[in-house]
């Protein structure tokens, strides 16, 4: 119990630091999702299964979806060559 809790806390804090220090915005969103996922397992260990379920579904799932859609609208997805969608967004 104590070892897995410590491991989860370390993973969570490292992912939170990665959110601040990563330059790539897609990687920052992925790191925020890792924070939510580790937090949901931590909630399960703290005997809060309903909160863990909500955190995994809403915090890690829906929040990442919203962030990814906003990244596309903001034009911050720098993952190589510009796709057709990026060109259309740019010309609009």
């Amino acid at each position: 119990m104590i070892w897995i809790t410590g491991l989860l806390v370390v993973v969570m804090l490292l992912a939170a630091l990665a959110v601040i220090f990563f330059n790539n915005h897609v990687a920052a969103v992925a790191a925020a999702s890792v924070v939510s996922l580790a937090l949901s397992v931590l909630f399960l260990l703290l005997k809060a299964p309903d909160v863990a379920m909500t955190e995994a579904a809403v915090g890690a799932g829906l929040s990442s979806l919203i962030l990814a859609l906003a990244l596309r609208r903001l034009g911050l997805t720098q993952t190589g060559a510009a796709s057709a969608t990026d060109e259309r967004e740019k010309n609009r």
Binding site: A16, V19, I20, H25, A28, V29, A32, V35, S36, L39, V51, E55, G59, S63, L67, A70, L71, L74, L76
Partner: peptide, 15 residues
């Protein structure tokens, strides 16, 4: 965008 992500992190800590 990074400020919004940091806000989400602080919220998770409060929870």
């Amino acid at each position: 965008f990074r400020i919004i992500l940091s806000l989400a992190i602080a919220e998770a800590g409060a929870n």
